[in-house]
Design a protein around this nucleic acid. Structure first.
Lengths: 195, 195
DNA sequence: CAGTATAGTAAACAAGTGTTTACTTTGTCA
DNA sequence: TGACAAAGTAAACACTTGTTTACTATACTG
């Protein structure tokens, strides 16, 4: 069992295809791969894609070739201790797609912008975007989007027996004990912030 | 100019295609659309795709049909005041893809996990994921990943004249004034957190 | 060196692609 | 109702797709 693919030119070809995928938002056809990688036969493209399939970068649906999460994933590096030193050498630990990581259920998730400072101690700042999933039943400690007495808020959800409380993550704000109209619109499953 | 497309069945068809796209990670072919939408002619699929192209859900690259950002985008709702009431009726303001929003430059961006609490007042908590872009020159106030005296840290970057300071967002930590070896590895362009 | 597995070339293949044309059906509006 | 635009059907179109076969060139191994 040999492997004649020069590993550096192989990776050059792969990142060429990656580039194509990122700019065109689709994978190149075999003929286009030939043009990109300067192959003269589609068979070479075929073999290349086989290699990429082996590495999990690509997968086949019938005769179609589909980019897997790995192809447009970002490299996940080690931890960076915010304050302490850490061995964050650029060892690639794993890869991931942000979309798939943050949103398991695209159909029932929506984005909303946070304003106000009531959740600031939970690291949710005004301007942050929150991903909220509809139709999820909240557990204790979940951050929820709730409608209390006709008003929308984002708070921690707690339930002790029959008593529901909506607690802010900011001492300047008061815990809400909804009386009648409590509607949990969604559970916050993730937050993000752009600088 | 009439528009005979019954708007509800049109949206049914579109979300059928959306479903297909989300599960298969590719758009269906015209024949597959026929099967999905119970058309008997590929022409109907053609017309449907035309409609979707008009709405910007899809675009054409030569004869190929490509899903635009809008197709797998999440609905962006209004603001939810975290602490104050707000008119967050589910008015769809705009749509967006998380990936494209958070990562403008995929090739030079990587992910790292935050540990430690030195940036906690900036809303960056341990366990958060930070997206860091290489080769960007930091501006005052940027959060950067830096190597100081052989150790990696995440801090605010400030420069006054020739004096560079790396400031934590936590009063329990001290500002670092790097002496010799300061290496800015990357600038943090966004952060995210999953619950 | 010889032996052999891999990579690349060339050409042909069947199958699937999106598009188009001509025609029928359906729906809307004056 | 009649006129007309849109949507759907059927069939054919040119073209691209990924795959395969047979062969040559290359590179590694013992």
């Amino acid at each position: 069992m040999y492997n004649y693919f020069d590993i550096t030119t192989l990776h050059t070809h792969i990142s060429t295809i990656k580039d194509f995928y990122l700019t065109h938002k689709r994978l190149p056809s075999y003929r286009e791969i030939c043009r990109l990688c300067k192959y003269k036969s589609t068979r070479s493209a075929h073999l290349l894609i086989n290699k990429m399939e082996e590495e999990g970068l690509v997968r086949r649906d019938g005769k179609r070739i589909i980019a897997t999460a790995m192809l447009d994933a970002l490299p996940l590096l080690g931890r960076v201790q915010a304050g302490f030193p850490s061995p964050a050498n650029e060892e690639l630990l794993d890869t991931m797609t942000i979309d798939d990581y943050l949103v398991p259920n695209k159909q029932s998730t929506y984005i909303l912008e946070v304003s106000g400072e009531s959740m600031i101690d939970a690291g949710i700042m005004p301007g942050d975007l929150a991903l909220a999933e509809r139709g999820k039943s909240p557990k204790n400690g979940d951050v929820v989007i709730a409608e209390v007495d006709g008003k929308w808020t984002m708070k921690y959800f707690y339930k002790k027996g029959a008593v529901v409380s909506l607690e802010p993550a900011n001492k300047k704000f008061k815990t809400i004990y909804p009386k009648e109209e409590l509607q949990i619109a969604a559970v916050v499953i993730s937050t993000m912030r752009k600088y």
